Computed example of a mutant assay.
Amino acid sequence: MSPRVEAVAFMVWRHCEPIGWDCTLAEAAAAIGETTRAVGHACKEKGWTHRFRTSATDYRAPLAVLEAS
């Protein structure tokens, strides 16, 4: 693994570990200022792709359910 990929992987780990990997790959990429492609590649190399959520959290969903009741 190249030093660049290792650096991206470290930044991903540093962002995701404290929040329990409760983010999507795209959210992690945005948080560390990298492209989703670079983050995806680093995570694939590390075997971390299964740790991410597969969809964004919709914070409006609980309110919509309550309002519909």
Rank of each mutant, 00 (worst) to 15 (best):
T36L: 03
W21S: 04
C23P: 01
A56Q: 11
A26M: 10
W13V: 05
V39L: 05
V12F: 04
G33L: 01
C43A: 12
V39T: 12
L25M: 13
A64W: 06
G20I: 09
V39C: 07
H50F: 00
T49I: 11
T35A: 02
A30S: 05
A28F: 07
T36F: 09
R51P: 01
A64Y: 03
H41K: 12
G20N: 04
I19H: 04
A29S: 15
A38K: 09
A61N: 04
V39M: 06
A28M: 07
A29D: 03
F52D: 03
R37F: 05
P62R: 14
R51L: 15
A9F: 00
V39Q: 12
D22V: 01
I19C: 05
T35F: 00
A64C: 02
C16S: 15
H50W: 04
A31H: 03
L63R: 14
G47T: 13
L63N: 07
A56K: 15
A38G: 05
D22T: 02
A30G: 12
I19S: 03
R51G: 02
C43H: 05
F52A: 07
R60T: 10
D58E: 05
H15E: 14
R60E: 07
Y59T: 15
A42S: 11
S55A: 11
R37I: 05
T49H: 05
D58Q: 06
E17G: 03
C23A: 12
A9L: 14
I32H: 03
H41D: 15
H15L: 00
G40Y: 02
A31S: 13
A26G: 07
W48G: 00
E27D: 14
T54P: 00
T57N: 08
P62Q: 14
F52P: 00
A29H: 08
T36A: 09
G47I: 13
L25E: 13
R60V: 01
